[in-house]
Amino acid sequence: MKDKSLVSINDYNKEEILKILELAAEFEKNPSQNILKGKVIATLFFEPSTRTRLSFESAINRLGGRVVGFIDSSSSSVTKGETLKDTIKTVSNYCDLIIMRHPLEGSAKYASEVATVPVINAGDGANQHPTQTLLDLYSIIKTQGTLDDLNIFLVGDLKYGRTVHSLLMAMSHFTTIFNFISPEELKMPDEYKLFLENLGLKYYEHTDFTEIISRADIVYMTRVQQERFSDPMEYEKVKNIYVLRNHMIRNTKPNMRILHPLPRVNEIHPDVDESEKAYYFQQALNGVFTRQAIISSILGLK
């Protein structure tokens, strides 16, 4: 994994994923070390994403590394009309690793081809966000003790949600049972269902989950994003369709945990937050350890 860019979750095989999760556990025990001393890491955010950027920068700072970069494209040479290629080629000269967020899909792949240092994709439009997926996996293994034989509920926008697609791909390395809960309009695309079928993995589709939530080990909630809808009426119809409330999780398994990539809008009611089954804020903390693991692995330090 040393010197190898991380653009898509498919860039890592099962062994590499497990290696990152092991390293993340090590960093959780000892999150402040000086192993990035002398390293300069560029965080290039062509669109703002405060949460992701702070998580990366926290991970780097705790390991003694230095950060250069910009937090949105208005403060970079992009406003002067510089191409992505030129920006990446130039920044490659200044750092040991590039972490980039960009609104256009495929931008991270392209950057990894023109850069002379490795690139970590921190989100390229609606395409990939692999460090999110790895932190989701770390949250799952940490709360369940295993990644095998879990019953995973994916809830909300399964059509456009990149986090659920990447999580599905990553969990397909393990013997997972998938339950897809979405309105008709936002069902899991056929290509993913076919992918699971070819692997012999089971999945079930539902439009409601109040009756079956007792079977879940992981409930992964997602936000229905307004910007995905061209017709505002369509959005109004589905936006409040799944709101998880505390009374709904009363009869769930003791090990069940609720995950959410955040930010949430209203799909998890605040009355769930106090439940020990609400895991989304710890999940965000896990992101720091997971990113420490990814960065140090790519830089060949672990």
Binding site: L84, G106, S107, Y110
Partner: peptide, 14 residues
């Protein structure tokens, strides 16, 4: 040509 208008190949010389 990639049909996705949000694809980097439709926004830069690639």
């Amino acid at each position: 040509k990639c049909m996705n208008p949000q694809c980097i190949t439709n926004n830069e010389e690639i």
